[in-house]
Design a binder for these strands. Structure first.
Length: 207
DNA sequence: TGCCAGGCCCTCTTTAGGGCCTT
């Protein structure tokens, strides 16, 4: 059975190209329809956390000063994830930080697995949701409360619950016995009006 | 102190603009 790694970063800003660094990472490993293991750590990248981000996340400069070095944390996170395919909510954001932080420790060019995006899949499967923010979708779907939002573990757990819900919805809607990470990747790029065709083609090619 | 990005996706579109989503 496939294991998927759902990850979430807290950072000092929106873009590593602009100097933003990760402050916290959490990973939830999902297998057989449930979270089977977790990794979480604050990390010290030697940068100050802007006050706006401290207000948003609750992660203070004092907390970062006491955290282990970013290099050690990212090495641990990469080892924890291994070769599992990845999922994040708005994956384009987390993918940038995953690659940039690992690149700093010489592991950035080794990522072989793909990043699926729970937000892109949710936009296709749940067009009637009020919006597609992680917290809104969790409330809209009645997913279990996961703790303080905008902290990495709570958001990774929420994204994991959302991913499991989306997989179950794909199974139900298209009559599939199992939903792979590769199918999530295919669906997140499919035109919203052609999801059925996308699934049929995926099943035919995979057979 | 204040500011910053970028891919996706819709529409009053495609020779573009702007909202969404992540911190």
């Amino acid at each position: 059975m496939e294991t998927i790694a759902v990850i979430d970063f807290e950072t000092t800003g929106l873009a590593p190209e602009q100097g933003a660094r990760a402050t916290e990472i959490a990973v939830a490993l999902v297998r057989d329809g449930r979270v089977v293991d977790r990794y979480q750590s604050l990390m010290n990248a030697g940068v100050r956390v802007p006050s706006f981000i401290q207000d948003l996340t609750g992660i203070t400069n004092a907390m970062i000063r006491q955290a282990p070095p970013a290099a050690r944390v990212m090495a641990e996170a990469a080892a924890f994830v291994g070769t599992c395919p990845l999922v994040a909510h708005n994956a384009s954001f987390d993918r940038k930080f995953w690659d940039a932080e690992l690149d700093r420790i010489g592991l950035g060019r080794t990522r072989g697995q793909a990043f699926a995006c729970s937000m892109l899949v949710a936009r296709r499967l749940l067009p009637d949701a009020p919006n597609h923010k992680l917290g809104t979708l969790a409330s809209f779907l009645g997913l279990p409360a996961a703790g303080r939002s905008h902290r990495a573990q709570a958001d990774a757990d929420m994204a994991a619950s959302l991913t499991l819900y989306l997989e179950q919805e794909i199974q139900r809607r298209f009559g599939l016995p199992v939903v792979s990470h590769a199918l999530l990747m295919a669906l997140q790029k499919a035109p919203r009006t052609r999801l059925q065709t996308c699934v049929e083609r995926f099943v035919a090619v995979s057979a």
